[in-house]
């Protein structure tokens, strides 16, 4: 008797929990839907973008650029992502968009391999398929909108740091996810380029802090302790870039240890101002969103993309490589304390 009552109450509360949880995921979807732009014309193109996760400033900036392009080009822009960078949750969202019969589906895949079959399914249903920000190289995608090449970023990071270090000395890299393909590609370029161009400089270690800023801070401090003659640190992603700068600031080593990284402008601003970060290498994220919508519209209208396309929306220097089906935004941007206020994300 007692037991059954207990089981019932367990079930009841489990049910309440499930409802509550699904309730909140539904709610975040509605918030996402408010991000749709444009008016509901009869033949208006529907371009949907699924970011790695929703709510971080990086993808919100991309969303802002996408909304702007949707208005300029008179298409409907759907921006919908999961609140965690989870490949499974992302796949579910992509499948629901396929059900909604969008015209163009753009994904920044968390896991390119598991996304590939889903994209193939979308293409079979007549949807134009693209990737943006992160590629799924072995998929059926028809265009990849690339923010910058691995080569460009790796070299820009290395040059920005070595400029401060006087072209020599020891530095270390605090990366994030150990399996993140783009970060690993950049690190490979940094290693090769440092060895070639700066023979007196040396990368002493590469560590992985996950997407956790506090862990990046403590690992950067460990690295400074382990190598007392360290003069440089690279924060490879948007959580470790402010992380390494904070570590230098807290250790009182501003001016002795220099840092660069891939950080979003507003997060880096306090560190750029006090010198704990020398510069942040990034690209214009809003423009990346704009370019994504533009490419989607080209694709859906059956137009080919020129080698040096005229995009509009203030984008200059985009290039298209037909062999790789890759549309490149341009050279990476160096953000310093001089120009950080131009960016509101």
């Amino acid at each position: 008797m007692r037991n059954t009552r207990r089981t019932t109450s367990v079930l009841a509360v489990a049910l309440v929990a499930v409802v509550a949880v699904s309730g909140c995921s539904k709610k975040s979807e509605t918030t996402a839907a408010t991000g749709t732009g444009g008016t509901s014309g009869a033949k208006q193109l529907k371009i949907a973008f699924v970011p790695k996760l929703q709510g971080i400033p990086y993808f919100e900036a991309m969303n802002a650029g996408g909304q702007k392009a949707a208005k300029d080009l008179n298409v409907q822009w759907i921006y919908k992502g999961s609140t965690t960078a989870d490949p499974g949750a992302q796949t579910d969202i992509v499948k629901s968009l396929i059900q909604q019969k969008v015209d163009v589906l753009v994904v920044a895949p968390n896991d390119p391999d598991s996304m590939a079959p889903v994209l193939a399914d979308a293409k079979a249903k007549g949807i134009k398929v693209m990737t943006s920000d992160t590629d799924a190289p072995n998929s059926v995608r028809e265009v990849f909108v690339n923010q910058a090449t691995a080569d460009g970023i790796g070299k820009a990071l290395t040059d920005a740091l070595l400029e401060k270090m006087g072209g020599k000395g020891k530095y270390a890299i605090v990366s994030c996810g150990q399996t993140a393909a783009n970060l690993n590609a950049w690190i490979a370029v940094q290693k090769k380029y440092t060895a070639e161009k700066y023979p007196n400089a040396q990368i002493v270690d590469t560590v992985y802090a996950g997407e956790d800023e506090a862990k990046a801070v403590s690992m950067a401090k460990d690295l400074m302790n382990a190598h007392p003659d360290l003069t440089g640190l690279v924060g490879e992603c948007t959580s470790s870039a402010p992380g390494v700068a904070k570590a230098v600031r807290e250790a009182g080593k501003i001016g002795k240890v220099f840092t660069v990284g891939l950080g979003t402008p507003q997060a880096m601003k306090p560190y750029l101002t006090d010198g704990s970060s020398s510069s942040s290498i990034l690209w214009n994220v809003e423009n990346l969103g704009y370019l994504t919508v533009w490419a989607g519209a080209q694709l859906a209208n059956g137009k080919t993309i020129d080698a040096k396309p005229a995009v509009g929306g203030g984008i200059d220097g985009a290039t298209y490589t037909a062999a790789q089906k890759m549309l490149l935004l341009g050279e990476p941007l160096r953000i310093t304390k001089a120009n950080v206020d131009q960016f509101n994300y």
Binding site: V13, V16, E60, T83
Partner: peptide, 28 residues
């Protein structure tokens, strides 16, 4: 509630995270 704490707090784990995300308003 008399429910096992792992279930209760697993529920509130998600609820609290939801509240936090709303308070962040899509910005760090």
């Amino acid at each position: 509630g008399g429910i096992h704490p792992i279930i209760v707090t697993f529920g509130t784990l998600n609820l609290f995270r939801f509240v936090a995300l709303r308070l962040f308003e899509n910005k760090q």
